[in-house]
Design a protein around this nucleic acid. Structure first.
Lengths: 379, 379
DNA sequence: TACCGTCGAACCGGTTATTTT
DNA sequence: CAAAATAACCGGTTCGACGGT
């Protein structure tokens, strides 16, 4: 019934003072050793480390940053239900931690708004904020930017908000690449299922329209209301199937949306890509699955993460310029401080796009495609 | 060029002392007012709040918890690539914050192991750890449990680890419900695509086998190696299609896996549920999509979250019992402190299960099903 | 003698500037 | 000058003490 004395006493965790007492030195010296700073002898250093190990000492991150004015803490707000944000987080960790910065996460979900998320990050004394796809009004972002550097990832802001940096993919360019690819294959009736008010949706829509115009296909352009989910893609696909003329290619807002489209086409026995080509956006894990094998526009997630973290750190370590030095129309993707960083997307061609069977009215009818792509029942 | 004086000075954020000076009171009093504690006059209270508002004061969470020995901080470790964890997190926030506890998140990903994740949580002075689907060896969990209360969610531990509480779904029971449902529909050739070494996989496998045995179908039981992803489900489905006899029903490890199966069946023109019934596990968003409409075993996520947080808080606020008081075989799902909390799953019947067309050798052949379920091209 | 509102000062666990040896 | 100790300090919380009904 008598439990053995636990190796580590539960009640109170060891402090600097405990280590100091055990090693027979002052707390200041222990602090020096723990931070691997200079100012301690080799022998003493060893003795202190030994003592710390013996009693299982761990520095208290909060007490530490209370004194040192730099906290080296980046606050990241993300949406729980967005796989894309998870990918970004992975990249953010990978860049921030080697650079000597810690990450404080704060999630946004149905029951927890952005206000609450950023409030806790501020209370945690983050030095800068990285917001993934924020939906907050511009005024709120400006308010935050008045207190600390703010980086908005994947959300474009109308007009520049002082103090807020934007890191995003060139969504219009991505849509253009998709349309160009389809046109090069011979498609003319290309529809777009859009993302409504989602971040990036407006740009993709515009990029689609612009590209169609440039190819002289303005009168064939069709934008259908869609969304971010399979469900919305499926709904739009049903509409498309009933449309006349039926499009020979579809650019969906993202991969999830495209997956919904594929599912409906499959059920309706419409062959992809022979009868209809489909393109997604994001190059998510989904798109890479062998049986989906989706042609898609890839976002350069590592680069987005690197830029977001880099911008935040640059603002912290550079001159403390308060105002925003908005850079004009420079969308080269270069790392221009104070402006907008735009990362180029790249088309990933997989199995859901091919030349159309009919090349439009009066066009050539090529040899019929090989039927269903990919896996049948074989082993 | 001269920017207007910012409302909130960038350089230094206001402190208690600033508020105190502005309101003409002591910092002690401001502290009392900010915490809404008793001991301050109504008039003063108002004046202090006003001053705080004017200069945009925010309490520093870390300095605060440095002094007060309770931090009211729960550390949560989760996997970035697990939608299931996202759902749990949503529930955890919903329970913890109203209970007066803050959440500190630490993500596990390819480049960031569990060791690192828990290390940062400890450095942040969390009072307890909630680990979602931890893969760490038992010894590591025991080590952590020696320092603070630990709750493992969805990972069952062989033998009880002192100080570690487990909150999980009765996975075996879920598999049993699925098999019972299929058998009641008339299925006998029921295959299981398992989850390998994933948390819960062993229990689901066992539940499947046990249920098959109980129905006298031991010799028909087939377990195929699968996994957590669509890809692995698709691979297993290809194997199944080639098998003789072909099963009339499949229980997949989870919904993603089941989706992969559905996709392959669809491509192979095998009608679901007429030719093959499919059941998933998790009742994820995926399963609820109209065009997927997957019969699945639902986990009670709000309940899991509630139990996980509840256990952690109970350990913190209850008597500081250090050792584990392992409760024996009580799997009633009741909230037994110190033991294992097992939450009952529930079958959600949707459109991917139905009576088989053939009732086995020599059985009745009912009227042929109506063909493809669900949406064709209609509007 | 009772509060009640308020204040000064010690304190939490570290870091850092300034001595001291 | 290097190694080590002393003490002030970060931004709050907490407690004992004090003046005024």
């Amino acid at each position: 019934m008598v439990p053995p004395t636990p190796a580590v006493p539960q009640g109170k965790r060891p402090t600097l003072a405990d280590v100091a007492a055990r090693a027979g030195v002052s707390t200041a010296l222990v602090s020096i050793v723990m931070r691997d700073a200079k100012g301690a002898g080799a022998a003493t250093r060893e003795r202190v480390l030994e003592a710390a190990r013996e009693i299982g000492y761990r520095p208290d991150a909060r007490a530490r940053l209370l004194r040192s004015h730099r906290s080296h803490l980046l606050g990241v707000q993300f949406g729980l239900q967005h796989p894309f944000h998870s990918d970004l987080l992975e990249g953010i960790y990978a860049v921030a931690e080697p650079a000597g910065y810690q990450i404080a996460l704060s999630a946004v979900s149905a029951g927890r708004g952005e206000q609450r998320a950023t409030d806790t990050l501020l209370a945690d004394r983050c030095e800068a904020l990285i917001l993934l796809g924020p939906q907050a009004p511009t005024a709120r972002l400006a308010e935050l930017a008045g207190q600390l550097p703010v980086v908005s990832v994947a959300r474009r802001l109308r007009g520049s908000v002082p103090g807020v940096e934007v890191v995003r993919t060139a969504d219009d360019e991505g849509a253009r690449q998709a349309v160009d690819h389809l046109v090069a294959l011979g498609h003319r009736d290309i529809a777009h299922i859009d993302g409504g008010r989602a971040p990036g949706a407006a740009d993709r829509r515009r990029g689609y329209r612009t590209a169609m115009n440039r190819h002289g296909l303005a009168d064939r352009a069709r934008v259908l209301p869609g969304g971010l989910t399979e469900e919305e893609g499926a709904a739009a696909a049903r509409t498309l199937l009933a449309a006349t003329p039926r499009p020979t290619a579809v650019l969906a807002f993202n991969d999830r949306c495209a997956t919904g489209v594929l599912d409906i086409l499959l059920r309706a026995r419409v062959s992809v890509p022979d009868e209809i080509s489909v393109i997604g956006f994001d190059d998510s894990h989904l798109a890479r699955l062998a049986h989906i094998n989706l042609t898609t526009v890839g976002q350069d997630i590592p680069r987005l993460a690197e830029l977001a973290v880099g911008r935040a750190i640059a603002r912290l370590e550079g001159a403390g310029t308060s105002g925003a030095e908005t850079s004009g129309g420079d969308t080269s993707g270069a790392d221009v401080p104070g402006g907008e960083a735009v990362v180029a997307p790249h088309l990933v061609v997989r199995g859901t796009t091919a030349a159309p069977v009919h090349l439009g009215p009066g066009g050539i009818t090529p040899t019929h495609g090989s039927g269903a792509r990919g896996a049948s029942a074989g082993g």
